[in-house]
Amino acid sequence: MTAMTAMTARTRPTTTAADDPPVLAVDADLGAASWRALGTYVDLRTTPDAIASAVALAVDILNEVDLACSRFRADSDLSHANRAAGSIVSVSPLLVAAVQVALEAADETDGLVDPTLGTVLTAAGYDRTFALVPADDPAPTSVPRPRRDWRNVQVGDDGVCVPPGSELDLGATGKALAADLVALAIAHELGAPALVSVGGDVRVAGPDDGNVTSVPAYPVVLAGTVADLETDGTPPRVRLRDGGLATSSTAARRWSRGGRQWNHLVDPRTGAPADGPLRTVTAWGRTAVAANTASTAAMVLGDAAWPWLLARDVAARLVDVDDRVLTTPAWDASGFEVSE
């Protein structure tokens, strides 16, 4: 982003903890902006006319998502619900929506994408925003087996009840929902097309829902991690005109605790970090949540991901630990991967 200049926005984005400074870089001429929020990076693309308003709207929405859904803020609605496990807790409509989406993802994957893995992640050391998690903590720890009781999570119009002994973690679908919310809000309230990437969970939306001709084909580069982009001279690139795209990778968010290597993708069937033959999966879905659900489930499934993706006609691109690439027929038919 050579043409971008750093500037101060009217509303400065905030992060959950001591992440990189949330410097906002905006290129008004190109309708592009990038900053940090929710403990990760945010990319926003829209029209030059709408970029200033879109950034302000996006920052406010992401702050709202953080306050509702963060596991690392004591004052978040999610933390209130987790602390009062076993009781119905009145929460914001946004957390209600996030829990509904998370439970739908769990149902769609028969629990492979499980929102009740908070106790496992916390015990493994991921109990704070990732920037503060020690890369190598030798302290031994006892990690509980997953309770797999996402079916016992209760959610109503304005309340949530976490099953006793469980802890909700919306890390899998939360950022994807944030991307969906921001893109839809820009399209709905500003009447402008937008691409939003929140930590790699991408959503494209236009003001005329369903009419893709009003939305440009936004370019998106793919990689296992942001660092990979810097070392890979020609990362694969897609052009996205609608829907969502998500990339999950065991190469991202890794840490060591008690001599055991962890990553943020936990297999709810075993409570162990996903360590199958896949390194990175990128999937398309009608929403960013749907795309993230598919990519996360595929990473957890490992060897069994291929038939699972084929059975559901998921457009997906898989990279194994030996850097071999496999694409599903739906991905090939989509035609959005380009070589530039």
């Binding site: 769609e108 679908t173 996205l240 999937a283 749907a290 006609d313 959005f336």
Partner: peptide
């Protein structure tokens, strides 16, 4: 919203 699969409109 979390249903996987489908094809892009484009």
């Amino acid at each position: 919203s979390a249903t996987v699969g489908g094809r892009p409109s484009s």
